[in-house]
């Protein structure tokens, strides 16, 4: 029992720290829907749409592979002029566009033939999207497949921000950089990021975050860092021996 107790306490503390972050960002559960609940929501769609191994076009097109697909491109389905126009404009279905379409179909595509008044409840939309996501390419198998969860602007609570200046936090954040950038400052193929003046580092990272600098890996990495985290990294790498 004595051995078990500290371990359980540790888990509780980890969980409560996660809780801190979650409370400031909105519940983490909202980050993605629940596919099982989504299967129930999908009952509302079933009159017109099929999905799954045997799915066929009915009144509406089947929904296999919809994530990542350009709108209105299924062979053998007669789309409305409005959907064809959206297709020509390059509308691609992902969590964001599908969420908007499901909330109010006519707001996204005026003249769509989908005579559905929409799902006003955000959780319903997230759930049904999580359900449908299972019938498109999995990012596990095809990493370039469209994301399965909404990206969120990480909005760290003051408790976490307060420890940003801490070396432990900088070191943890930096460990992600060190998969590619070498801590000894070698720069073959991938630039060195050690011993940069802090301001240059911060400016460069914000330029990636705002997608002014073009490198896709760095845009992705910087895109999920807050101002405070960028500052912490700059401080960490400036002093790295």
């Amino acid at each position: 029992m004595r051995a078990a107790e500290p371990r359980r306490l540790g888990a509780v503390i980890v969980a409560s720290f996660m809780g801190l972050a979650a409370s400031a960002t909105g519940a983490l559960a909202e980050l993605q829907g629940n596919p099982e609940d989504g299967a129930v929501v999908f009952q509302k769609c079933k009159g017109c749409h099929q999905v799954g191994p045997e799915a066929q076009h009915r009144i509406g097109p089947h929904l296999n592979g919809i994530f990542g697909a350009t709108a209105g491109r299924h062979e053998g389905f007669a789309y409305s002029k409005a959907m064809q126009r959206a297709s020509a404009d390059g509308l691609t279905w992902d969590l964001g566009t599908l969420d908007a379409y499901l909330e109010n179909p006519r707001a996204l595509i005026t003249g769509t033939r989908m005579s559905f008044r929409g799902l006003p409840d955000e959780q319903d939309r997230h759930d049904v999207l999580a359900y449908l996501r299972q019938f498109s390419d999995s990012p596990r198998d095809i990493p370039e497949a469209v994301p399965s969860a909404f990206a969120r602007e990480v909005d760290l609570p003051p408790e976490v921000l307060a420890i940003v200046g801490d070396r432990d936090y900088g070191a943890y954040l930096a460990s992600e950089c060190l998969t590619c950038h070498q801590s000894d400052g070698s720069d073959a193929g991938i630039p060195s990021i050690t011993r940069w003046p802090t301001e240059d580092f911060v400016v460069a990272m914000h330029a990636y975050k705002r997608q002014i600098r073009p490198h896709p890996v760095m845009q992705m990495m910087a895109g999920r860092l807050t101002d405070e985290e960028i500052a912490a990294l700059a401080a960490y790498f400036q002093d790295l021996d």
Partner: peptide
Amino acid sequence: VKVGAAYEATDEKISSVSSFV
């Protein structure tokens, strides 16, 4: 060539939140 993505932990799974190729 390359492909990549960023992920976040949710209670259910590690979820992709952005990708590039």
